[in-house]
């Protein structure tokens, strides 16, 4: 391993960490603004011009707020749980090709931290591990609301892992590789080559599963304020609670990236236009998260499970079978 590679990797890690953290921050600002506009409000306006520095204010607040650890919690687990959520969200980003390679001077930079050939498996694995954040946090909190939230989280995340996996299986069969770069390359031909056209069912299933995995409306059941306070986050305060928050938003961006790369052509042919296109696609997907939150109600936990096992999973399996048959033929 040469020095340049190490430096490059470290730089890329730092950049991703910073970018995703910043995105999480801007994500909150963006969400508040979008929701406000959709509800005929203005959203944050006071801190900085148009409330732009609200993120900074929130950051300062979260960093400086007292980190309260209640008396009856299981202290080490309670402390580590938010870290798991945030860390897995960032770790998953390691396998994402954000842009095509480019050169600085004569050095070629690959804007991906780790171009592993089983990127998708890695992503699914890390996302699965992220489940432990809410799970452990809720169990350790010694709070009934947290416990309910944990039960829901375990049920939902495990169930929807199935949908996620099955829905990607059909595109995987088409591409024949687990590398996200290969996926990108597969669709590089233009809009017509996007997998979403050939696998619309898989796309829809994947997006639905993405909502469930990130716990966003209409599947915002793990931390449904009006039922169970803040769910697993109820007992958390200060930066520990902030880590859960960052994790959630980082996950949203991450899912948006993955969806864009898997189904919507990624960065296309590697040109600047393609790179901008990726950003646009990601932005739209992120916006879509907020949009649904403004428009749709939540479903009940039992409806969610019913949807998963009795509707989505059969459809996903059928989709794989059909894909297989089509490929065979």
């Amino acid at each position: 391993m040469d020095m340049a590679f190490i430096i490059e990797t470290v730089v890329k890690i730092v950049v991703i960490l910073l970018v995703f953290s910043a995105l999480a921050g801007f994500g909150t600002y963006f969400e508040r603004k979008v929701l406000a506009f959709m509800q005929r409000r203005l959203g944050p306006m006071h801190v900085g011009p148009y409330g732009l520095l609200q993120i900074a204010a929130d950051g300062i607040k979260l960093f400086t707020k007292e980190d309260i650890i209640p008396q009856n919690v299981v202290k080490p687990i309670f402390q580590i749980a938010p870290v798991i959520t945030a860390a897995t969200a960032f770790m998953a980003a390691a396998a994402i090709p954000f842009m095509p390679s480019f050169t600085i001077g004569d050095y070629t930079v690959h804007p991906i931290v780790a171009d592993i050939n089983i990127g998708i498996l890695y992503i699914l694995g890390v996302m699965g591990a992220g489940l432990y954040g809410p799970l452990l946090g809720g169990l350790a909190s010694a709070n009934k609301w947290s416990l309910i939230s944990t039960a829901r989280a375990a049920a939902i995340f495990i169930s929807y892992e199935v949908i996620t996996g099955l829905s990607i299986l059909a595109p995987l069969m088409m591409v024949g590789s687990l590398s996200l770069i290969d996926f990108n390359t597969y669709q590089a031909g233009g809009i017509g080559n996007w997998i979403v056209w050939s696998q619309p069912v898989a796309f829809i299933l994947f997006v639905i599963a993405g909502f469930a995995e990130t716990g966003r409306t209409p599947f915002h059941l793990v931390a449904n304020d009006h039922e169970i306070i803040d769910g697993f986050g109820t007992e958390y305060s200060g930066m520990r609670w902030g880590l859960f928050f960052i994790g959630e938003y980082a996950n949203m961006f991450f899912i948006s990236f993955v969806t864009a790369i898997l189904f919507l052509g990624g960065y296309g042919d590697g040109s600047l236009l393609g790179a901008l296109g990726l950003l646009l696609k990601v932005s739209f997907l992120f916006f879509f998260f907020l949009w649904t939150r403004a428009a749709w109600p939540d479903v009940r936990p039992d409806q969610l499970m019913w949807l998963c096992w009795k509707v989505l999973m059969p459809i996903a399996v059928i989709n794989i079978v059909i894909t297989g048959i089509v490929m065979m033929v």
């Binding site: 406000a36 959709m38 509800q39 005929r40 409000r41 203005l42 306006m45 428009a295």
Partner: peptide, 12 residues
């Protein structure tokens, strides 16, 4: 909600 966003008829 999208329509309302673009109308930008703010009541705040």
């Amino acid at each position: 909600v999208l329509r309302e966003m673009f109308k930008f008829d703010i009541h705040t």
